[in-house]
Design a protein around this nucleic acid. Structure first.
Length: 295
DNA sequence: ACTTTACCCTGAACGC
DNA sequence: TGCGTTCAGGGTAAAG
């Protein structure tokens, strides 16, 4: 499932293979793949024809290609199973091909959006002055962004009445984190997923953010090797980083720190993997608010 | 105003 | 063998 590192791998591929190219045609094979483009598929294709693409950008799990002068951008979200592929001319259609974009220089291959579960999609939007597509103005900066504001995150965490894993997955607080890297960062930080964010110290926030950044950087370093020369690849299924995971998917396997069997808990219609010894649950009483002063 | 849940979707893995 | 059920996941609209 593409989280920040996987999306960044795709961004780098797009930067290399689509930067500066001019779109010839766009073909939408499944309407859901452009559902965020409110004016519909015909408008989407018409407005892309003949337009030149700029260097690929990313924030969190979103990526976009500036169009022409940068006043608009072709926005992509991979959802759970989306892939953006550069395919040589004549390559047979993939089973779940949703959108095909061809270029004026056809020899360079075409851009394909392939998405089995159709949770992802493409759309065209106006951009703000900084180039950010308007529809993702609410997405927070991600921890690999030099302008990421850790102090602001800590303030927000202290104010909120929520738990730490929910907060990690909330893209308006910190973007790019999904279920896998959330569990990895929590394990590294020895924090239980149900820990109220209001109880986190500044040092704990700093450690948590540091671990998010570290695990993403490590994954990115390995994801970089998934490229083949003419192929922008999202390795959606396993990826190499699988072997390096310390928490996610390791139910009943020994904690790499203390040897205690790892556990899996049902959590928000998905799973949380954690070490019951290293990551102790919070005391049930706490909602994170300071105790009322006693008379 | 803030927090939580339901929903979208397909295919793999499972149980009977 | 085949059918039905469950699960996986991100983001957002809607509900609480």
């Amino acid at each position: 499932m593409p989280e920040l590192p996987e999306v960044e791998v795709v961004r780098r591929g797009l930067e290399r293979w689509t930067g500066g190219r001019t779109i010839s045609t766009t073909e939408v094979l499944h309407p859901r793949a452009v559902r965020r483009h409110l004016a519909g598929a015909p408008d989407f294709t018409a407005r892309l024809a003949g337009r030149r693409l700029g260097p690929a950008q990313r924030r969190g799990k979103y990526l976009w290609l500036p169009v022409e002068d940068g006043s608009h951008a072709l926005l992509a979200h991979l959802g759970m199973s989306g892939q953006l592929l550069i395919q040589p001319p004549g390559t047979p259609d993939e089973r779940h091909l949703r959108v095909r974009i061809t270029f004026a220089d056809a020899a360079g291959g075409e851009l394909r959006f392939v998405d089995q579960r159709t949770f992802g999609g493409l759309s065209l939007h106006a951009t703000a002055e900084d180039g950010l597509p308007d529809v993702i103005a609410h997405i927070a900066r991600d921890p690999l962004d030099p302008a990421f504001d850790e102090a602001a995150l800590h303030t927000a965490l202290r104010r909120r009445r929520t738990t730490v894993k929910r907060a990690l997955l909330d893209q308006s607080l910190i973007s790019g984190v999904g279920n896998i890297y959330a569990d990895e960062a929590l394990w590294r930080s020895r924090l239980h997923y149900d820990r109220p964010t209001a109880t986190l110290t500044r040092a704990q926030t700093a450690e948590l953010v540091g671990h998010v950044r570290e695990v993403m950087t490590a994954a990115l370093a390995q994801g970089g090797t998934s490229f083949d020369s003419l192929y922008v690849n999202v390795n959606g299924e396993s990826g190499y980083f699988d072997r390096s995971l310390d928490a996610y998917g390791r139910e009943d396997e020994p904690c790499r720190r203390c040897g205690t069997p790892m556990r899996r808990s049902a959590w928000m219609n998905r799973s949380s993997y954690f070490c019951p010894r290293c990551q102790r649950p919070p005391r049930p009483r706490g909602d994170g608010r300071p105790s009322p002063a006693r008379a």
